Amino acid sequence: MDLKTAYYIGIMSGTSLDGIDAVLADFSSSPPFLLQTCYLSYDSELRGRLLDLNHPGNDELHRAAMLGNELARRYAEAVTGLLNKCGVEPRQITAIGCHGQTVRHCPESERGYTIQLCNPALLAELTGITVVADFRSRDIAAGGQGAPLVPVFHQILFQDSQVHRVIANIGGISNLTSLTPNGEVTGFDCGPGNIMMDAWCLHHTGKPYDENGAWAEFGRVIPELLEKLLALQFFSLAPPKSTGRELFNLVWLESYLSGDEKPADVQATLLQLTVAGIAGAVLAYFPDAAEIYLCGGGARNTALVARLRMALPGRKVELTDSVGVDADWLEAFAFAWLARQVISGVPASLPAVTGARGARLLGAIYPG
């Protein structure tokens, strides 16, 4: 197969605001496979500027435009690093699928918008490669949530004709994909992933995340606080549903705190909140699932994984590494595939997941 039809790049920078994941994917065979990966971390200054745009502030339009340009340059840097690592030329890449950086996600019908910062025209200019971006807006325009978008790709990689599997993506937000043996695919956001743990950890320790959940392990879960947090209406809403920093943030958390809590105990409670959101959704909606596979940054949190195994007894709980795809790179891989669908003119949305009125072609094309 001509390389021009087989090579795509996927770029993902998630709600956790840790950095940029970029992958080079080869779609010349089935299943597709990853050829190379590249990661660029965000510095604290950029992370802070992005966080500021999650809330109303002065001169937002200008600041958002400047950040879109800055992100395009950093995405281009990731693309260059990726291609240099494997000796592939830009002319060999069909397209880049770039998710962009989410700063607002308000899919509710009375609002109906989502914002992922990027300047895809600039990214195409800097790389000389066609860019596909703005994957979520069309689904929202069709009445959907615009998220999660990756369950259809999970189906390609992980569907099993004998076993009911659930893929749990633990990024900033946690979302689930159910893959039944008869081919049914459903999914939804189920609550915070790393977003609350990271925010609390940064606020109290200055570290961007709690490595392996070590600080949370040092604390004790506060049952009364956990109960209050889980009483949030989002957890009892039936799918389709999606969420983000608009709901889960430090202001929300601190409204439930007395101020006397030990910070490590709050961290332990936030870890358990993530566990409860995932396990509770699995037990409520997919009780027959026998295998749970974890991906995203939270899959590397050993304390979190251990708690999930305790909360889901009698089920296999492993990382997607064990079924052939590195848990760290799965979402970027998915956006390479989504770009391929757009270039091929094939709808890639799942109305059963997002609640849209029908399948839609997702993404806008910026020629290289």
Rank of each mutant, 00 (worst) to 15 (best):
E261W: 13
R307L: 06
Y209H: 08
A281G: 05
S255G: 14
E211Y: 13
L271K: 06
E261Y: 14
P192A: 07
K316R: 15
M196Q: 04
I292S: 00
P223Y: 14
A289E: 00
L294Q: 02
L304F: 15
L232R: 08
K228D: 03
L271P: 04
A199F: 07
W215V: 04
C201H: 10
S242A: 13
G280P: 06
A281T: 12
T274F: 06
N212A: 14
P287Q: 06
E254F: 13
Q233M: 03
D260M: 11
L257Q: 07
I292C: 04
A299S: 15
Y209Q: 05
V305W: 01
Q272W: 09
E318K: 11
K316F: 11
R245G: 02
L273T: 09
P287D: 01
D198S: 08
A279R: 03
E227C: 05
L226C: 05
D260F: 13
G213K: 03
E227H: 14
F235W: 10
W200H: 07
L247S: 06
C295T: 09
E318R: 12
L304G: 05
F218K: 11
G259Q: 10
P287M: 04
E254T: 14
V251S: 13
A284N: 12
E291G: 06
A299C: 11
S255F: 11
Y209W: 14
G219S: 06
V317D: 01
K316W: 11
G193K: 01
A276F: 08
M310V: 15
P240G: 05
W215H: 04
K262R: 15
T302E: 09
Y293G: 01
V305F: 06
L202H: 12
T205Q: 03
L225K: 01
Y293D: 03
P313F: 14
F248S: 02
N301A: 06
N301Y: 10
G296W: 02
E246K: 08
V221E: 05
T243A: 02
P263D: 02
R300I: 04
T243L: 00
G296K: 05
G280K: 03
R307Y: 12
I278T: 01
E254C: 12
T269E: 00
C201G: 00
K316A: 10
D260N: 14
M310Y: 13
A311P: 04
L257P: 01
L225C: 00
E246P: 02
A279L: 07
L312A: 09
G298K: 04
E224M: 03
T205L: 02
L253N: 01
P223A: 08
A268W: 04
L232Q: 09
E261R: 09
R300E: 02
Q233R: 15
A268I: 07
G296L: 03
R315G: 02
A231D: 13
R300V: 05
W252V: 06
P263T: 14
G296Y: 07
G280Y: 09
G219Q: 00
A289M: 05
V317S: 05
Y209N: 02
R307S: 09
